[in-house]
């Protein structure tokens, strides 16, 4: 048995906002090439967790190791450069620029101009936006803007993708396409997906981590999670004591 360094590992990760504990001693592990879903009711601490991972906020205490390297508290751009990309909950795109420019800006950071253009073409193909490449992003539908953001993050060639509600506000057809895109991405990269939409989770999930009141309540296969009485209670709003 060899001990592998996990792709991402947090230990006792805690975030206090004044007296409110948004994340409380989160111990989280993610392997290479894994596709993990995070679920949990509103306010469970999923987005706060993502914000700490990407340096948008500095953890109150605890550690984050990406490939064994500590990244807790580093500025966002340095974390991004280690290979961590995020699609945020509220789409963070360059609204005044074209679809192509959005993706190019991401591709050009690591690539030569010629390579960057090739990467952009490939990404456009992948997120199915080749036809729309000259459109101004601010004028696209919400679903398409989500794809622009996923494509933009992907063009940065991250080793781990964090997707915060990638299917929010999408039609059923768009949701299906998004699931397809995520499965394709997962062929080469690890992904963590936060989502509320159970139908969407069912399309992609293998292992699911359930957040509740800032802690990890359970971590198991989708089948077992859905069968768990506590998880159902949490979603239905009953009081649950986390061990």
């Amino acid at each position: 048995m060899t001990e592998l360094v996990p792709l991402l590992k947090t230990e006792k990760l805690t975030m206090n906002f004044g007296g409110v504990v948004a994340n409380d001693s989160v111990d989280f592990n993610l392997g290479e090439m894994e596709l993990r879903c995070l679920i949990g009711p509103n306010g469970a601490g999923k987005s706060t967790f993502f914000k700490m991972l990407t340096g948008q906020i500095t953890p109150s205490s605890g550690t984050i190791a990406f490939r064994g390297r500590s990244i807790a508290g580093l500025p966002s751009h340095e974390i991004a450069r280690t290979g961590l990309g995020i699609k945020t909950q509220i789409p963070n795109v360059f609204n005044g620029l074209s679809v192509r420019e959005n993706i190019w800006l991401s591709a050009r950071r690591k690539n030569t101009p010629r390579m960057a253009n090739l990467v952009v073409d490939e990404i456009l193909e992948r997120v199915r936006l080749t036809e729309k490449q000259s459109a101004i992003v601010g004028q696209l539908s919400h679903g398409q803007r989500q794809w622009v953001e996923i494509g933009t993050v992907l063009a940065g060639d991250p080793e781990l993708l964090l997707l915060d509600e990638p299917a929010a506000g999408m039609t059923d057809k768009e949701t299906e396409r998004t699931a397809e895109i995520i499965r394709e991405i997962n062929e080469a990269r690890a992904i963590i997906v936060v989502e509320h939409d159970m139908e969407f989770i069912k399309m992609i999930a293998r292992t699911v981590t359930v957040f509740h009141q800032g802690r990890i309540m359970m971590e198991d296969t989708l089948k077992n999670v859905l069968a768990d009485a506590r998880v159902r209670d949490v979603y239905l709003g009953k009081k649950v004591v986390v061990s």
């Binding site: 990407t54 948008q56 500025p75 966002s76 751009h77 991004a80 450069r81 990309g85 995020i86 945020t88 963070n92 795109v93 360059f94 609204n95 005044g96 620029l97 420019e101 190019w104 800006l105 991401s106 050009r108 950071r109 933009t152 993050v153 940065g156």
Partner: peptide, 21 residues
């Protein structure tokens, strides 16, 4: 110049892409 315009458009996104805004 293009990155500067990107920072004007959305500083958070530019930082999350790895640019030191």
């Amino acid at each position: 110049g293009r990155v500067a315009v990107a920072v004007r458009e959305n500083e958070t996104r530019a930082a999350l892409l790895g640019y030191d805004t």
